[in-house]
Design a protein around this nucleic acid. Structure first.
Lengths: 341, 341
DNA sequence: AATTCGTTGTGTAACGTTAAAACTTCTTGT
DNA sequence: ACAAGAAGTTTTAACGTTACACAACGAATT
């Protein structure tokens, strides 16, 4: 692979002149510039990003770390982050942390992170790892629910409000026996995640509407299709009557709708179902899926703006920001009011 | 950020000794090793991956370039590549090339690629870019259909066979008027892609089974939910009778099933539908979706093995390999034989 | 002709790491 | 006691780039 030295030799100039041409710095005569450009073309030279990063101390790359890239929510998130970061001249690479395994965030070791100018991390189990991450000099924005001991730039969605929106809608469309799949009862104040907060919203909303808000109406599950399927099975086996079901993600909801059908329960006639995330697929399932929609664009915009501002040193060290994205409910067929036909 | 020099000074040794400890090289006395380890901990030192790469000429990172990360097929692919590469000690970062825009592959500029040891690229429109990519010294494996002028390591699935499997199954389960969404009629020999090959298989299979194989029974579309919806609309508007529908991807199929329902056509009673890719979702839709399943694991394994072998210099320069993955059809409800109930 | 100034270009020294070789210090056998 | 080798550690020189300081040059000013 050709280096700057090769180009310099070929063009009969110094390496610095080559560097100046490449970086479009002034004070290079047009003739010289052309000569260098020609040499670059002839040799097929391309600058070595590694060397440049080492010298400059920056890479122009932001890392987006997500638990599992094959979940639609994260696919869309990645898509949006890539587009948004491009407007600020940054590239994005995606790293998968693997939600399940504890300490997996250690995979995002310091050494690895030095290849990036900033990090947007969708935290799931950041409890242990936060200290390490924050100690790093790397600008970090956390996407997630948890409040951390040390201050962080953070972008979250209002999961509690979202959960409440979901139950209210179920009750207001005529259901009385509501249940939830994919929620979790917090075992401690430090143990907050999306599952917990959505469950909290669910309970609050149920109480508010005066329907049974027994925590036994919440079953835990993976945020997956299988989780939804198994969740329905467990609810029914436990003999819990259900005519309104709130699922902590759309994937769970799709798995649940399927399982309900397999048990002879029709959606929305027998059971109304609300999902969460509003993935594109929600409009296309049969029945289409009512879902709680976070303001994705707003959140992504906030997150990228925040890292970029820190990278550019535009914000004071101690000035941490928290942004909470708004929620809306998108009504579709899965909660249509029962209508005899 | 602390450097090796800082650690060395603190531990009272030379930088090389620090390097030796970090890389677990022999010939370091236990006591010295401990002293260095302690210094590392105290300073919170982590090795600078950029400097290491520059010096060593490798990064331990493989790049996976896909057109759009928010399509389930690519999400799963990424997942599998990450897992498989880990077994060989490589990390994976994902880059999005943006299928649609021509020349977008230029985004994978040489300079950028130097940060990686190898590249697995899911090519969609590689026509112009192949020369540049192949000229690079970087080991490249192409995932895709196209045959290239210059030799490449390539892993593909047998799209033609897959398309044929789909129609055969439709006909064998009792449909006579078959159509396809997401296919494309090739405009030239150099213009081959998944849409074209699957269409070719569709036509061949239809002819083989003696049903109408008119190219007008194929409509083009995006590989998206919307593409499926619009495809159905166009088929019906064109007045083409359909009782068997082959969709070039599962996403198209899901969009199509939805659109069929909106037009009062029931799946599988009125129309049998076959998708392609066998994404996990296919088991969970209502009705569940019959799909053509590529041997994903086999393909990913082949692709990763090939890049890794090249990275390690285990293969002769001129020894190019092509692997074509096998196809199977997974029968589900969307093509159930009509059964009066 | 001497002075100043802007333009154009070059040398040097890093950035933080590691490969290779060189140099010390210990073991061990005789 | 001493060579010979092994173990432990350091020196040196890169990897390819860019920040910085400065040199050479001609043009404009005095």
């Amino acid at each position: 692979m050709a280096t700057m030295h090769d180009v310099a030799r070929r063009a009969g100039v110094s390496v610095m002149t080559v560097s100046n041409v490449i970086n479009e710095r002034p004070h290079v005569r047009a003739a010289t510039r052309e000569r260098v450009r020609a040499a670059i073309d002839e040799l097929g030279y391309a600058v070595n990003a590694t060397a440049r990063s080492l010298r400059q101390g920056r890479t122009g790359v932001i890392c987006l770390a997500v638990p599992e890239i094959d979940r639609p929510y994260f696919g869309i998130l990645a898509q949006l982050v890539i587009e948004r970061a491009a407007t600020d001249g940054f590239e994005v690479v995606i790293e998968q942390t693997g939600a399940a395994r504890a300490g997996e965030l250690g995979a995002l070791a310091h050494s690895r992170l030095r290849s990036y100018d900033g990090l947007i991390i969708n935290a799931v189990r950041l409890a242990g790892a936060d200290a390490a991450l924050l100690r790093s000099e790397l600008p970090v924005v956390v996407l997630g629910e948890r409040a951390y001991a040390e201050p962080v730039d953070r972008v979250a969605m209002d999961n509690v409000a979202g959960g409440a929106l979901a139950v209210r809608h179920l009750v207001d469309s005529g259901r009385r026996s509501v249940a939830m799949i994919g929620g979790r009862m917090s075992s401690g104040p430090a143990d907050i995640d999306a599952a917990t907060e959505r469950a909290r919203g669910f309970l609050a909303g149920a109480a508010e509407r005066g329907v049974d808000a027994d925590p036994r109406r919440i079953v835990e599950s993976d945020f997956s299709l299988e989780g939804g399927r198994d969740g329905v099975r467990r609810l029914l086996e436990a003999g819990i009557a259900v005519d309104g079901l709130f699922c902590a993600t759309d994937l769970i909801a799709i798995g649940a709708v399927r399982a309900l059908a397999d048990h002879g329960l029709r959606v929305p006639v027998d059971v109304g179902v609300v999902g969460f995330d509003d993935v594109p697929l929600a409009s296309f399932t049969t029945p289409s899926l009512t879902s709680v929609a976070p303001d994705r664009i707003g959140m992504v915009d906030a997150a990228v703006s925040m890292v970029v501002a820190r990278i550019r040193g535009e914000r004071a060290d101690a000035d941490y920001r928290e942004v909470v994205g708004a929620m809306a409910i998108i009504e579709r067929e899965s909660t249509a009011t029962i209508d005899p036909n």
